[in-house]
């Protein structure tokens, strides 16, 4: 297993390792292989890396054809181009046809901070989650990214894997097996439950430390698989505290917050707060951290959201 702390590096290395064992694995890029780390496949297996140039729609449909021919195509582009530019090709060719295509949405969220709104994705999870037959995974760090990459290679069917381009703190336990659809509780706590994924998992853990100093015990769950959502686990973790916060680097409409709310719709008396992008596009910034702070995707924002749900909750006497 790789020790890289950069998720896309971990992804690229894992894909090459998998491709060494499984000849069916092929990779496709649309002139972004240096960013997506498809270049590692190209260096190791040039004949199994297919450069489709700047044509995402054709790339996705070609991947469908490769899957029909028995290959396991990993399709790389920025999350926003894959989910947006090639949406109908994904809808008809991948999702409706249940093609064994792995869609790797790279440089997702605000992680391509400099390039601005055109290159950032705040809506990809919502788009992908609304497609029948689609599995949607948002790993928290490099370790989970590598493990998820292995898992989706052996899973048969359409997958959207959302990747971050920047170094992230390691939070996913090295010894844990990654299973698609599993919710990972990374910290126990009886006062409030935080469901997070992607970059927000490490921030939720930071928030939990801050709150612990004030005597508030926070349960933190990594909901990397947004779909299919482990509804039972979400309900059970939510009921343990009765106070829920979701945290994601995505529009609060349609992403993890929505998925958790849907799961909890039948549970009475649970208060929920969302930490996410408040229905706005991104913009350019000189650093990833600046952008995350600007859109309140911070540990502090998670702390505030926890305080807010706790203020409504009768279960904590302060």
């Amino acid at each position: 297993m790789t020790r890289a702390i950069n998720p896309r590096e971990a992804y690229g290395q894992t894909l090459v390792t998998l491709a060494e064992k499984d000849k069916r694995i092929v990779a496709l890029d649309a002139d972004l292989s240096k960013s997506t780390k498809g270049d590692l496949m190209e260096a190791r297996f040039p004949e199994r890396h297919i450069e489709m140039s700047i044509a995402e729609q054709n790339m996705v449909s070609v991947a469908v054809g490769l899957a029909l021919g028995g290959k396991i195509p990993f399709v790389h582009s920025f999350a926003v181009f894959l989910s947006g530019r090639a949406y109908d090709q994904i809808r008809v060719g991948v999702a409706l046809a249940k093609a064994n295509v792995k869609l790797i949405g790279s440089s997702s969220g605000f992680s391509d901070y400099g390039d601005g709104a055109t290159h950032q994705s705040v809506e990809d999870v919502a788009i992908m989650r609304s497609l029948p037959n689609m599995t949607v995974i948002v790993p928290a760090d490099a370790t989970e990214t590598a493990k998820a990459t292995e898992a989706i290679a052996s899973y048969r069917g359409p997958v959207y894997l959302k990747l971050n381009r920047n170094d992230l703190p390691l939070v996913f336990p090295e010894e844990k097996e990654f299973i698609i659809g599993k919710v990972y509780q990374l910290r126990q706590g009886r006062h409030v439950t935080v469901f997070a994924n992607g970059v927000m998992v490490s921030r939720a853990l930071e928030a939990a430390e801050v709150l612990a100093r004030r005597g508030i015990e926070v349960s933190v769950a990594d909901v990397s698989t947004v779909k299919p959502l482990d509804t039972q686990a979400v309900v059970s973790l939510a009921l343990q505290t009765g106070a829920v916060v979701t945290a994601e680097e995505h529009n609060i409409i349609g992403g993890l917050g929505s998925a958790v709310s849907e799961a909890l719709r039948a549970e009475a008396g649970i208060r929920i707060e969302f930490v996410g992008v408040n229905d706005m596009f991104g913009q350019s910034a000189l650093s990833y951290q600046d952008l995350l702070s600007h859109y309140h995707l911070t540990a502090e924002a998670v702390v505030q959201a926890c305080d807010k749900v706790l203020a409504y909750s009768s279960r904590v006497v302060r």
Partner: peptide
Amino acid sequence: RKTVGIEANTGSLGQGLSVGLGLALSHKL
């Protein structure tokens, strides 16, 4: 997924040639 003998889902126009190319490349590989 519904009809035996159908090789690809089509109908949203413009996609079938790309799918065919993917199949052709798969056979070449």
